[in-house]
């Protein structure tokens, strides 16, 4: 059982909140106290593409109080098979504005902090990445490039914040929850990015959406202390075959990011 707690801040519910989250509050180990934790929580989702759009949407639906979102660029036709917070009429316009609009359509009570930027040290300074991560209680990493994933991993571990690592390729996904001082970090798992990883990868929205839902569930569990997070284990699935399995994962004593934690 993890000793980590990130949902300490509770915000009292209004009658309107109770009406909206009535069926969710019925979850036995959530209750109104858990919903107050969700309302008090802040989650960074970077980026809001095929995977992160579903994470953000599910967290907005669940009543997470604040979402910090980073996603750069203008909407392209090839985004529309998976980036579910985008709409056809938004082609050519900033993706992050579509994200904002769609999330507030669902949950107008949501506090949104948005960045039209991707969080890699090639794009913005290390200081700025630290500042963005500092606004959240936890991070859900949905970035398609390892430079971004490594940058968020460094910042989250330096600040003692958990990071849900979810990723997909073709019809496979991998997901694990990393907690500083308790679990491996991304550099423990993959010390270097893989040779030949390309920005364009084969993807069905249904696959990125599947792991996106799992990422949102992990964030909800961390905030509300429900169940057991996917710590020290990597959940791997092959949706082409409909199989999944777990791999026990370990910290590396020589990890440059987390060895001193």
């Amino acid at each position: 059982m993890s000793q980590f707690r990130c949902g300490e801040k509770k915000v009292p519910l209004t009658d309107e909140d109770r009406a909206i989250w009535d069926w969710q509050i019925a979850t036995e180990d959530l209750g109104e106290a858990g919903q107050e934790r969700l309302k008090g929580a802040s989650v960074l989702v970077s980026r809001c593409g095929g995977l992160g759009s579903v994470v953000a949407y599910e967290l907005a639906a669940a009543g997470v109080g604040t979402l910090v979102l980073a996603h750069a660029g203008n909407l392209q036709p090839s985004d529309l098979n998976r980036q579910l917070l985008m709409t056809h009429d938004w082609l050519g316009k900033p993706r992050i504005e579509s994200v904002r609009r769609r999330l507030l359509d669902l949950n107008p009570r949501l506090n949104l902090v948005t960045y039209n930027a991707n969080l890699s040290e090639e794009n913005i300074s290390e200081e700025k990445i630290n500042e963005i991560v500092a606004q959240a209680d936890l991070v859900v990493d949905c970035a398609p490039l390892f430079t971004e994933r490594y940058a968020m991993n460094r910042a989250a571990f330096q600040q003692g914040k958990p990071i849900v690592e979810c990723a997909m390729y073709d019809m496979e996904y991998q997901i694990t929850t990393m907690i500083p001082g308790e679990t491996p970090c991304l550099r423990c798992l993959y010390p270097e990015d893989p040779s030949g990883w390309k920005r364009k990868f084969p993807v069905f929205g249904a696959v990125s959406g599947t792991v996106g839902c799992l990422g949102a569930v992990e964030a909800i569990k961390l905030i509300t202390d429900i169940g057991d997070p996917l710590t020290n284990r990597l959940l791997c699935a092959d949706l082409r075959r409909g199989t999944h399995g777990e791999i026990a994962i370990h910290r590396r004593p020589d990890c440059p990011v987390c060895r001193s934690l």
């Binding site: 980026r47 593409g49 095929g50 995977l51 992160g52 949905c142 970035a143 398609p144 490039l145 390892f146 994933r149 979810c166 990723a167 997909m168 390729y169 073709d170 496979e172 991998q174 798992l189 993959y190 990015d193 893989p194 990883w197 990868f201 993807v203 990125s208 990597l234 791997c236 791999i247």
Partner: peptide, 10 residues
């Protein structure tokens, strides 16, 4: 033996 390459599709 299971071999997984790092993936970052999002």
């Amino acid at each position: 033996v299971t071999l997984l390459t790092a993936i970052s599709g999002g």
